[in-house]
Design a binder for these strands. Structure first.
Lengths: 196, 196
DNA sequence: CATGGAATTGAACATCGTTCAAGAAAAAAA
DNA sequence: TTTTTTTCTTGAACGATGTTCAATTCCATG
């Protein structure tokens, strides 16, 4: 039941995003009553959260595979590859990727711990090449910087795929991401050198 | 009438964000009938758009003032100041700033031209210091890079102020923004030097 | 078979944005 | 002024939505 609901919701979100999700249709495709949903979940948001967790897992797997392929290579190139992976995933899973950020957290209860743990693991992927570029950074500033770099790439991809800015062809967007992360890498190296 | 509606909507959005906006309350505070709204606007989204335009104007004014203050100084510092301005505005006008990006454009009709023009003017503020750092860049790549840098800073601020990431104190966030944009500046300079 | 508790149901509720037939107001014509 | 035509305004009503809960069904236990 529970897993049926999540699966059905996942299919809808993957196809049409959060806006396409709706309790009555969900009940029908799963073949249960409307009220039954609320025996399993406190509200629809909980289902969305479940789907988002799965998306995050997919994403992590996707990015980690690329990171593994680049293991040991030039860390600056590794950063670029990570950013590219982010873009590729976002483009090829747009609706469900958007759902990750469209879904406003009810400020009552914060994010589940598992969610935060997933995030931390993602940031770790950024931290590794970052540590190679900037061995002088302590743990905490390195973690913060990884998070900041993640957010920056997110912003570039996110604003572009929303229609909030005049939309760019994906190829141009890719060039921008690569160039920009390259610049950040150069800046990081220069900063480390200056510190030496 | 029209301006009353916009003013009332602006007050609501500035206080409680888009989620607080609602046709019936709006009609009551303006003192008109529910249907009257739809004599003036085709739908509520149009009012939101109007408020967002005003927010964009406020924002531009805010950022431009800071940019003017930094005129002629070290362009790398100028970039940092712009990013700081972005953060300051977002923090001090959170709900209405969020409304800018929460409001999903109905894919039917794209953004109004005026909106795009406002954006272009914003990016110009970034382009100026960028041009000083990278005189080698042609117009088009410079414009693209300005847009990319804007998006990056947006991402850092946006993800932080959403509750989607474990939230940081604003002071730490400010440090991150400054450090990060500083790194980008260094990277830009190094790139320009290498090209010379 | 009877009985008590648990699980399930779907009609009903509250709240949205939006519409539109009916009425009011204004303008034009007589 | 009175009548007719046009325009504008209105708020009840519609359709969707998430969520609830009294009534019903189900099932394990005595």
């Amino acid at each position: 039941m529970r897993s049926d609901l999540i699966a059905a919701a996942e299919k809808v979100i993957a196809a049409k995003g959060i806006a396409g999700l709706n309790a009555r249709d969900l009940a029908e495709t799963v073949g249960c009553s409307l009220g039954a949903i609320y025996n399993v979940f406190p509200h629809l948001d909980a289902i969305i959260f479940e789907v988002n967790s799965r998306t995050l897992a997919l994403f992590e797997q996707f990015v980690a595979r690329r990171a593994k392929a680049r293991e040991g290579v030039d860390p600056a190139a590794g950063l670029i590859a990570l950013a590219e992976a982010y873009l590729d995933f976002a483009v090829s899973h747009q609706p469900r990727w958007r759902a990750l950020f469209d879904h406003r957290v009810s400020s009552a209860d914060g994010l589940p711990d598992s969610y935060l743990a997933d995030q931390a693991r993602l940031f770790l992927l950024v931290e590794r090449p970052l540590a190679a570029l900037r061995p002088d950074l302590e743990d905490k500033p390195r973690m913060l910087m990884a998070r900041t770099m993640f957010s920056a790439v997110h912003g570039i991809v996110s604003l572009s795929l929303d229609e909030k800015l005049k939309s760019l062809p994906v190829s141009v967007l890719g060039d921008q991401v690569r160039t920009f992360v390259g610049i950040v890498g150069t800046g990081l190296i220069a900063g480390a050198a200056r510190r030496r």
